[in-house]
Design a protein around this nucleic acid. Structure first.
Lengths: 140, 140
DNA sequence: GTATCTGCAAAACATTTGCAATTCT
DNA sequence: AGAATTGCAAATGTTTTGCAGATAC
């Protein structure tokens, strides 16, 4: 579980954010909270459909869009043609290895970054990511 | 023109990077160099097809992919479902206004950002972007 | 019983691929 | 001529939409 208030259940956590906790929504949120490898829609769908045979991909899309609007996940736009999802809503960066394709979490101190010219802008989201070779792939 | 060596022509600049300067490639590069608003493939295609009626979108895709591989542009992955392109290959950030959709350049000092845990990683690309409301949209 | 949620099928996009015609040297 | 480039048409893959049936309160 990856929740701000660990005492909560997923159901309570979703409710608190104005999301009706249907069975599918709870399962999708729990999947994200326990699979921190920044899954794509298809990852989520393929894994969950073994447990929930009636699940449809549309529901996964609907649910993730709702989660995004309600602020319980962040969309990681790092691949050029598919979105990834992360239940960790704290500001942090990502690293994508161009060889093994894995996406790593990267702790970054955003306060060190003082962009000029944005003084009158309202910044709602910070996105930082890196691409290259991870330690393992680099050695080979 | 947005070139490291302003003395060059587009033709010379492309050659230097191992790109045969065909008519279409020169026109697409010039478009990027003079339109710094981070256009999408469709922006480029729709604008250039008035001048070059035979231009195909495939050629725009082919050319941008080639430019990316040869390192004369960077792909900005900031929209959730389409790529944007920038002939400025220096490290810099972007800000996308969620209201007017405009993408602004943001000078950032990447060296201020010392991500932990990437010591053995080879970082080839840095990407930093922000989302929110720009100064103009915020006032309204 | 009325709202909402789910999921199938189809549509809408962005992007890629196969291949034939064109262009360049 | 030979090699690279262009561009049409079709395919692919992701995401969205319309809508009917199921579910929840």
């Amino acid at each position: 579980m990856n929740m701000k208030h660990p005492i909560d259940t997923t159901e309570g956590y979703l409710k608190k954010h104005g999301i009706k906790p249907s069975y599918q929504r709870i399962r999708i949120y729990d999947y994200l909270a326990t699979h921190k490898n920044h899954p794509s829609v298809d990852h989520i769908y393929q894994d969950l459909r073994h447990d929930i045979p009636t699940l449809s991909k549309t529901t996964v899309y609907n649910t993730l869009k709702l989660f995004q609007v309600k602020g319980v996940l962040q969309v990681i736009v790092i691949e050029e043609n598919e979105n990834r999802y992360d239940a960790d809503t704290d500001v942090h960066g990502h690293f994508r290895c161009e060889k093994c394709q894995k996406i790593y979490d990267v702790p970054v101190n955003i306060s060190q970054l003082h962009p000029n010219g944005l003084e009158d802008f309202l910044i709602k989201e910070n996105h930082i990511y890196f691409k290259g070779l991870c330690a393992m792939c680099r050695k080979k």
